[in-house]
Structures are given as structure tokens and as C-alpha cells.
Write a protein that binds this DNA or RNA. Structure first.
Lengths: 158, 158
DNA sequence: CCGTGGAAGTTGAATATCGAATTAAGTCAT
DNA sequence: ATGACTTAATTCGATATTCAACTTCCACGG
């Protein structure tokens, strides 16, 4: 941990950039959540559907899915139980490793995905993507990528 | 709500920018939370301390504090109860409007703030601010500001 | 083989969050 | 002043999240 004495306070410019990033990420999540609500899905539900629907055989190991969606195994386990009760996914055991389980997208889950995705994309466009000039979006991605890498590198560390 | 037929899918560039933003905001929150943990504070605790410590008389009306921290009154109410139990804030009734309450920073809350802030700033620098070239940070702020405004504009709306 | 350590996943209890209902008090038109 | 609306804040029940404990299985050194 950095000692306090050599850490300069944030400048005004830095403060504003920081607060803005914070506000955008929170407000955006709220908005997307609200836009999904009519379809009976949460952001977390949706993200899991995306990951499964893009995966080989529409299935992923619990651990991999947890890593992909950046949540704890425990949380994912509860989440999958809920989605299983809702008929969107099912658990299937893994032959090669008898400890393992796959979360598998059901047909209903797939249909839900196909039905909801266009609305969600529209929502992401309306509230985020379309509000940038395309070169700004690219600049955003470029400058954010090292941050993501830095943070991924210290997941689960000290 | 936009109809699906006229909403183009996200391009690769857009997808990547979007996923990166998503990942950064989640990973960052996790990391900051972890860095605050040794001090017994959550991000939410900290943000409330910041808001109160910057406010006139180190106090804010519950509603204003809820608005400033982008959370529901219900959530804030619970949150303040916890922080009250922890001795960081207290509730004080408002003379001019007998329905109203102030959340007031206690001396202990103020001391906690002064003690923790440098570490938190260091954390924000290490995991976010210092990872940008300063012109990139300014570009980030500039391009994110309209998004924040757009989203603030539709808080609590349809 | 055996046993020790680690990984995959679940469970349960404690805690936090959400949304609707509730209480109490201000506002305002008549 | 009275009744109808609105606003401030809390409470309650339903859901979600966290954290630690636990079970089951794999890997591998002796």
C-alpha cells in the first residue's frame, strides 16, 4: 500500500473525471436494469444469457462462467439456481471432471435471449454508445483498456 | 421504447468499448472496496463521509444525501442506521421542516474521514487516475459528461 | 495404494437491497 | 380552516449478496 505522504490529492480535473466516471457507471447500470425489467430479467440474468449463448454448445463450466461475469462462485451458484427455477438454464454434470458442472442454456433461455437482445442493444445504444462520436468511443476504449488489464491482473490478489 | 427493427447491432468496435467500460467499472469498484476493507468501510460508507464532510456544517438532509449518492431513500435510511451504530454519523431533526432529518457527521466520522482519505485517494490513483495520460483523462471526462447528463435527466422516469 | 493438499461447487446464516406501503407533516385552493 | 395533494422519511416483506463452512473429487508425492 502506498504511504499517504507521497500521494498527491486529486486535482480538480482529476476529481471531475473520476466523479463523472463513477456517476456514469452507476446511472447506466440503473437505467439498463430498468429497461430490462419489463422482460423479467436483471442485468446479471442478461449477462449470463449472453455468455452462455456465445459459448460452445451453449454451455459453460460454473467456474468459467463465474470468472467471465466477474462474480463469486457462491453468487453465481445462487444466481443459476434462480435462473434454473425460471427455466432459462439447467445444470448438467461434467464427465471429464466429476466435481464439475455445466450451466446450459435451455431452449427457453435461448428464445428469451433472441427476444430480449434487440431491446437491450437499443438500450445500450440510447444510453451510451450513440452518445459518443465514433472516434471518442475508440479513444475511450483505448484509454480504458490498460485500466481493465491492470485491474484484471490484481483480481483476487492482496 | 425504440423498436427492434431499426436498431443496428453493435459493431466490433462498439462491443469492445462497451465491454471494456463495463469491466472497468465493476473491477474498479471491487478493488476500491477491497482497499477500504482494512479501515472497516465500504464504498458506500466512504461516499457518504465525503458528501457530509464537504457539506455546510457537515450535515445534509436525508433526501439530498440520497440524491447526491444516487441511491434510494430506503437504502440510504438503512445505510445511515448502520453508520449511526458505527458512530460515524448521527441523525438530527430539522427545525424548519419537522418531517425532515439531517444526517450529521460525528467527530469520530470526521476523524475517520481524515485518516482514511489519503489511502483512498492513493487507491483511486493507483487503479484509475494514474493509468491515463492527462490529456486522455480530460478526453474521458469530456466524452463522458454528456452521458452523465443524459442519464441524470432520466432518473426516476419511465 | 494412501493421504495430504487443493479445486469445484453448494449451502446456510447474516447482511444488504429493493419496492411498496405507511406515517407524519407541509402546501394550497377554496 | 378544511380536505386533497405532495413530500420526507421510515418500515416491512421479498430478494439478492456475501462469507465461511462444508462436501466431493482430482492430483501427486512417497
Amino acid at each position: 500500500m502506498t504511504t499517504d505522504s507521497d500521494t498527491p490529492w486529486l486535482t480538480d480535473q482529476e476529481q471531475r473525471a473520476w466523479r463523472t466516471h463513477l456517476d456514469v457507471s452507476r446511472l447506466l447500470m440503473h437505467q439498463l436494469e430498468r429497461d430490462l425489467q419489463p422482460f423479467g430479467l436483471t442485468n446479471n440474468d442478461y449477462e449470463i444469457l449472453v455468455n452462455l449463448s456465445e459459448a460452445e454448445d451453449r454451455r459453460l463450466r460454473m467456474s468459467d462462467l463465474a470468472a467471465a461475469t466477474l462474480q463469486s462462485k457462491s453468487r453465481l451458484s445462487h444466481q443459476i439456481t434462480r435462473m434454473e427455477n425460471a427455466g432459462l438454464v439447467r445444470r448438467e454434470s461434467c464427465e471429464s471432471d466429476r466435481r464439475g458442472l455445466y450451466a446450459v442454456l435451455t431452449d427457453e433461455g435461448w428464445d428469451t435471449m433472441r427476444r430480449v437482445a434487440p431491446h437491450h442493444v437499443a438500450s445500450v445504444r440510447r444510453h451510451f454508445i450513440d452518445l459518443f462520436a465514433s472516434e471518442d468511443l475508440e479513444a475511450l476504449r483505448t484509454s480504458l483498456t490498460p485500466v481493465a488489464e491492470h485491474l484484471r491482473g490484481r483480481r483476487g490478489k492482496v
